[in-house]
Design a protein around this nucleic acid. Structure first.
Lengths: 343, 343
DNA sequence: CGGATTGTGGAGAGCGCTCTCCCGTCATGC
DNA sequence: GCATGACGGGAGAGCGCTCTCCACAATCCG
């Protein structure tokens, strides 16, 4: 195999200078149409393909972006973090949204996983080396250090969900309060009178917002006091919270659970106590995750427009890459109610 | 923000030449330990990170590889190809296997989708530009042109499954005949005496091998004639094939179906005809896809070691990248029987 | 009609790195 | 003793591209 043709070769074939060929390729400045035509033919004849490394070297752009999934799953040999991520339909929706936006623009995402501090450091180093121009970060961990690291390294990046600490970084999020209100409206519309809620860990912003939103909406419906038990967004904590709620408020007829996983646990406990769902107790979850359709009865829940949010992340990121000085932005999306069986 | 430090800066700080710093970083040739130490300190002090573009330019390596999913799904606005891919657990297993191998080596895959000829051409162009050193290709389409394009462009690549045409390209595959034999053994062991099979489209190699392997194994068990109906690997074709089989051989008591999707269709038809599975008719599928656990009764099926296969693809690819002249290789994996409810 | 302005192409300087030479310094062997 | 070679370091030539600067021609305006 002979060496790949370079700009120089094309220029020689077309009888022009290297600069002119570059201009034609990049469509920068005006070039005489006749010369353009000659150059294009020369490119086709030589089978020229621009060398990305050389271009990157001078433009300081790679034309690639990283899709980073950060979190702290129980990472072990048999079931590593990345495998858990792929098994989660949420990630599929994010990736699909990102790809949908980036692909028409000729950009392909680089997949990275950050489940340990070492991995996170490595990712920052990779980005600084210029493997990608920026990062789209999906964090499954409440106090992820990666947003801060990205921000400090001044790497263009966009997060899914508002960061826990106040970090100058762009993000997209869902209107948690509106979602909680949808849940409240649904429960009230079904005629629930004694409503309680299982909140997420209250050091997580999303959990705070969902609780506050739910309480506000219920208050507006004339229910100023809503019993609440805090959970940890896990299945087991959902069970425990439901047990407690049931023992303290045996007469309840409606529960808003701050995520589907806990709701799934709550459903099980309700059944053990002989409560029928939704006849005796209506349950509304949050997230529309796979747990929502996996549980019996299937969960009525609040759905994020994940694909749209992911596409918006990609759009924001490209803006930041193109215009480094640009101020940080956040875009909030409206969730919707998905009615299934549980409420 | 000041400009990122370069090798030159580090060299100056350490009081050595650029070449020496480069040698320390790349661990090439011997460098005096004292000088090494000085250089390392200088690197830490300056916060130096090598520039990938510059390195790529001279080494002609990117240190990145592409994970390409090619196919021809019904791609439309509402449900684009990439979204179908992410929804498929098979892809998740492949990606997970690839990532598991590549990540410890500091390599992150670039995700690419090729569902149209245009996309395929673009991918070849991307690879030729040096976005990645090679490609891992998972093709969901029997007569995919991409393997040939990759081979012709002399791009290091490894396929999942043997290509339809004879193309000089490395691949990993599963021993379809062995898998079919496992199915035959299972049916015979359950006492099935009147066994039939639903094959895949016989222009697909895998389908041919599964059929041939099944017939050979059944012949060895003393059943030289096995009725067969050809399907298209789709749910609907599985239904149609089962209908036909049942009408032509109403007394059958065992079916080997060449993939799970068709088996799922077959199961439904058997139920409609009042046959109990597995009591009246035992059914064995192939692939251990999500359809296997989604169907009722759950399918006994043949499982590929997908993660291992994917990791092997990555390993082979890196070999090809490191040693361009290396002959094409194929690695065949042994499938296993997963016993569930249907047989 | 002259000077200013605009439009178009070429020359050439790097971008930051690797890697081939080359040179000086020792240890080695006859 | 000196030729020989091994070893460790420096000098510098590019890798292929973009982009600034410059030259030149054509157009414009007063």
């Amino acid at each position: 195999m002979t060496a790949a043709p370079t700009l120089e070769d094309v220029a020689r074939a077309a009888g022009v200078s290297r600069a002119t060929v570059s201009r034609v390729i990049n469509g920068i400045r005006n070039v005489d149409p006749a010369i353009q035509e000659t150059v294009r033919r020369a490119i086709a004849d030589t089978g020229y393909v621009p060398n990305r490394a050389a271009r990157s070297l001078v433009t300081r752009r790679t034309g690639a972006i990283a899709l980073v999934v950060s979190g702290a799953g129980e990472d072990d040999e048999a079931n590593p973090f990345h495998s858990q991520v792929f098994a989660d339909p949420f990630f599929g929706r994010v990736a699909s949204g990102v790809v949908g936006f980036l692909r028409p623009r000729g950009i392909h995402p680089i997949l990275m996983f950050a489940e340990t501090d070492e991995a996170r450091t490595q990712i920052i180093s990779f980005l600084r080396q210029g493997y990608a121009d920026g990062a789209i970060l999906v964090s499954t961990q409440p106090h992820d250090p990666l947003p801060r690291l990205l921000s400090e390294a001044a790497l263009p990046s966009v997060l899914f969900a508002r960061p826990g600490e106040a970090i100058p970084i762009s993000y997209v999020d869902v209107a948690h309060r509106t979602g909680a209100k949808l849940a409240a409206d649904r429960l009230v519309a079904r005629g629930c009178r004694r409503v309680a809620t299982i909140a997420g860990p209250l050091d997580v912003l999303a959990a705070q917002d969902r609780l506050a939103g739910f309480r506000d909406a219920m208050a507006a419906h004339g229910h100023p006091y809503i019993p609440c038990v805090e959970g940890q967004f896990t299945y087991a904590s959902g069970e425990a919270a439901m047990e407690r709620l049931l023992s303290e408020h045996p007469g309840l007829d409606g529960v808003f659970v701050a995520n589907d996983l806990m709701a799934q646990g709550a459903l099980l406990v309700l059944r053990h106590h002989g409560r029928r769902v939704p006849e005796d107790v209506a349950v509304v979850g949050f997230d529309d995750s796979s747990a929502a359709t996996a549980s019996r009865p299937m969960l009525t829940t609040i759905r994020h427009p994940v694909e749209d949010m992911a596409a918006e992340m990609a759009r924001l990121l490209l803006e930041h890459v193109d215009e480094p000085g640009r101020p940080m932005t956040s875009v909030i999306f409206e969730p919707s109610l998905v009615v299934r069986e549980s409420a």
